[in-house]
Amino acid sequence: MIRLEHVSKNYKTSTRPALDDVSVDMDKGEFVFLIGPSGSGKSTFLRLLLREEVPSKGKLYVNNFDITRMSRRRIPRLRQSIGCVFQDFRLLVNKTVAENVAFALEVIGKPSHTIKKVVPEVLELVGLDGKANRMPNELSGGEQQRVAIARAFVNRPLMLLADEPTGNLDPDTSQDIMLLLERINRTGTTVLMATHDHSIVDSMRRRVVELAFGRVIRDDARGVYGVGR
């Protein structure tokens, strides 16, 4: 599903590698937390999986795509197999909830009868039925993140990448979002979530991969945020 073999990433403008000789395997259906202090390389890790960036060294496989050797023409196929959510939601402010979700399908050429069918389904899954015609600025932060998750999941991706999805939310709302991500994980979707949130990681007891200065310093099958620190 995800396999990194001695992957390093050097940004041109930076002297220190953002990722340094990282080797990790993640299987289908896993739920993995990616933790580490600010600047440790979590977002870089996720960007490599999306091929927003290319590794400077090493081999990288995602959903059977050989990221280091694939042609640019195949990138859309890769990304269609991955859903993403971010701390800042990234919704289109001039579109309704339903339109935001539909947008993700329109731009990959899905027929409109499919869109009409699956958008209400996924809105119900994330608990937003009844709010389909609201604008994003008429929603709470938690609800906006649900829209973003619906948009990421509507095409039934093989994996969901979340870069600090609860970073802008209060603890209760964060808990709701985590329940939603667990629900999505139970459908067989791999979930990889970068986070700073101690309590979430500690309460879920899932696999934890910890980065520091671009290196993997810990990989626990049922980990907590900070052992002995």
Partner: peptide
């Protein structure tokens, strides 16, 4: 740019973007 950024993320081809 926001639209195009989302389009790229969800895997829209160059035709669409």
């Amino acid at each position: 740019r926001t639209e195009v950024g989302i389009m790229r993320l969800v895997g829209a081809t160059r035709w669409y973007t």
